[in-house]
């Protein structure tokens, strides 16, 4: 009896597996398009952004929930940085793990590899990018009340940092969700010394002290990836604090009910309910009178 149950279980298991296997075989995996990008701001640890897209129809669509393995220089256990899973916009990111910092510091050229392996829905995929280390020197100068932003793009060559000419660079003011062009132009091209500059004449609000963040960045450069340098400076208009939220208004929360709306209704409530309690007291007086009558 026991044996029968055992063997039937095995048969069931085999059946299940074959069904599953055949189902898996039938399913055709689609192809992913993976994008890998390198970002570094100032001297922070760089961040790797991956995005995954697929093309089921005519258009590319973002793919959510794809685990992308990221490697530093080599696709080995030593090079494994971690795994980034794409969000609903098909984007995932990973900052360079601290254990690679020394390695990264000592190198001038490096490679990043992104792979997708063993995914149920998609074919294996690999993308790599090579990055040349670069630097942006940012200087904010004020002479005779003329404010100038100077940025210099440098790369390490033959033992020293040298300017990189003919590079497109953006000069910007950082805002909450995006960067606003700080000069007249959207892009500036570096000169022979690797320098670009623009006058800064924006009258733009900063924080309460007038601080703003000004920066220079190169985006999606073939060699350098994306790099940005930023500095904080008091070139903004100080923001006047707005206390309208703390006012007692009709739309405020209950702890900020307008005073008149507290005084008058409560006066009325007190007056009316005071009388109601007096009426109840009158009922009690009638009861007491009645009880006294009874005892007489």
């Amino acid at each position: 009896m026991k044996r029968l149950a055992y063997s039937s279980m095995i048969i069931a298991l085999i059946l299940c597996t074959t069904v599953l296997l055949s189902a898996q075989e039938k399913k055709e995996k689609s192809t992913l398009r993976i994008n890998l990008a390198y970002h570094q701001q100032n001297e922070d640890l760089p961040i790797l952004r991956v995005s995954a897209q697929t093309k089921p129809g005519k258009k590319f669509e973002a793919v959510e929930g794809v685990a992308i393995n990221l490697f530093f220089n080599e696709e080995t256990a030593q090079g494994f940085m971690g795994r980034a899973t794409t969000n609903n916009a098909g984007v995932g990111s990973l900052s360079l793990p601290a254990k690679f910092k020394n390695n990264w510091d000592s190198l001038l050229n490096f490679k990043f590899i992104a792979t997708v392996t063993g995914n149920e829905d998609f074919n294996d995929e690999m993308v790599e990018i090579e990055i040349v280390k670069a630097r942006i020197d940012l200087a904010l100068e004020e002479e005779d009340s003329v404010r100038v932003i100077r940025a210099k793009v440098l790369s390490f060559e033959d033992g020293s940092w040298v300017g990189v000419p003919e590079t497109e660079i953006k000069l910007f003011v950082r805002r909450l969700l995006s960067d606003l062009s700080a000069g007249e132009e959207e892009f500036y091209t570096t000169d022979e010394a690797g320098e670009a500059s623009s006058e800064f004449s924006l009258a733009i609000p900063g924080d309460a002290y007038g601080n703003i963040i000004i920066g220079a960045k190169i985006e999606d450069h073939d060699l350098f990836g994306s790099k940005a340098a930023t500095k904080i400076i008091k070139w903004g208009i100080p923001l006047e604090p707005d206390n309208s939220f703390d006012r007692r208004t009709l739309w405020a929360t209950r702890d900020k009910t307008p005073i008149w709306l507290l005084i008058f209704p409560n006066l009325m409530i007190a007056g009316v309910w005071g009388t109601i309690f007096y009426l109840i007291y009158l009922v009690i007086r009638i009861i007491k009178l009645g009880k006294a009558e009874k005892s007489v």
């Binding site: 701001q41 969700l177 995006s178 920066g215 960045k217």
Partner: peptide, 12 residues
């Protein structure tokens, strides 16, 4: 392309 949707520099 992504950097256009979320401008660079906002990423870190």
């Amino acid at each position: 392309p992504l950097p256009k949707i979320i401008p660079l520099g906002q990423i870190p």
